[in-house]
Computed example of a mutant assay.
Amino acid sequence: MQREDYNLAFLLRYENVAWYENGKVRILDRRVYPYKIEFVECTNYMQVSEAIRDMVTQSAGPYTAVGMGMALAAYEAKHLKREDKLAFLNEAADKLAHSRPTTANRYGQITMKCVEKAEEALSLGLDPVQCIFELTIESLNRRYHTMEKAARYLVEQIPENGVVLTQCFGETIIGMMCRIANEQHKSIRFYHAETRPYLQGARLTASVCHEMGFDSTVISDNMIAYVLEKKDVDLFTSAADTIAMDGHIANKIGTFQIAILCKYFGIPYFVTGIPDIDKSSVKDIMIEERDAEMVLSMNGLKHTMEGVKGLYPSFDITPPHLISGIITDKGIFSPYDLHSYTKTAVEAFY
């Protein structure tokens, strides 16, 4: 099987996302990358779930981690009887899927496919651990290949010597956008919003774009209006943790305010991703609130007085009137017409 992570940055190579081997799952700790390259090693599926919840990996990383976590769960259950083994895997699938609430539907698609693959493997006398591992690699290949199609449509929107503003870490689309641009010898300059409180834009997106040869500049989250006004930005792009069918999208907190500023300055905002057919409207989007301590400190250093409170919603919701287009593997769709995406066959993504 040809792997789809060729010519991509270190952060996007399969073994550096999440990897199952010999009864363990190894996950690159993105909380400290790039100034440290460390891996968190999990010896049971609950530790994988905790790693996702604790943001050892995020963006699209958990899609891989839950699959590898299911391979680990199958390893944990290897001595159980068939019925008990499947019950254990179903429980693991539910726990892993609900590691983070906003994207539980996406994780669940992956984990339940792993259960189905394990059941099929047991019926055929095959090793469910290996079959789930191989399924996860197939899923990775499929997602990378699908987002490469979307990246081609995105790169078409960027002029030669264009200037692009990013938000948070879109992971696969960021890598594929850079790979396609390199293949086309297209010059792009990037401004990366730092994305407090975990700095994914500064540490992850900027690292990928820089490693892949692009001019990359990090800005703090309160510099957006200045940059849009003064630095000739051609477009703003982000991925989305959820794309509801009514055109509302949820993405890293701060995306909404950037979209408002882009509307004010007349700069297009393109969202990349696959519509969530199981989320009909904004009412189906759940916003995860995380530990406020993450806002009150950074890198272990507290920067507020005792008694000062914090607030940390992980995501915000951007309405369709602020979105210029949803870029998918099938082309660019109006956020008001996402049902057209389903008029032709929808290939499996997760």
Rank of each mutant, 00 (worst) to 15 (best):
I267D: 04
S281W: 12
K279R: 14
Q257K: 11
I243M: 04
A239E: 00
F265A: 11
T237L: 03
T237C: 04
A244C: 05
P275L: 11
V271D: 05
A250L: 02
G266S: 09
C262Y: 07
F270E: 03
K263F: 07
G273C: 02
N251P: 07
K283P: 10
D276N: 15
I253W: 05
G247Y: 01
Y269P: 02
I258D: 01
P275W: 06
D246F: 11
I274C: 12
G273M: 02
D278N: 15
P275H: 09
F236A: 02
K283A: 15
P268V: 07
T237Q: 03
L261F: 02
T242P: 00
K252S: 10
T272G: 10
I277W: 10
A244N: 02
I274W: 06
Q257F: 05
I277M: 13
D246L: 11
D276G: 10
K283V: 09
Y264F: 12
T272C: 14
T272D: 04
I260N: 13
S238K: 02
I267V: 12
G254T: 00
H248G: 05
C262E: 07
G247T: 05
P275F: 09
T237M: 08
S280E: 15
F256I: 07
P275D: 10
T255F: 03
Q257N: 12
Y269N: 08
Y264R: 13
G266F: 04
T237D: 01
K252D: 06
Q257V: 06
G254K: 00
A240L: 01
T255W: 03
I274R: 13
N251D: 09
I243C: 03
A239W: 00
D246G: 11
C262R: 10
I267R: 04
M245K: 09
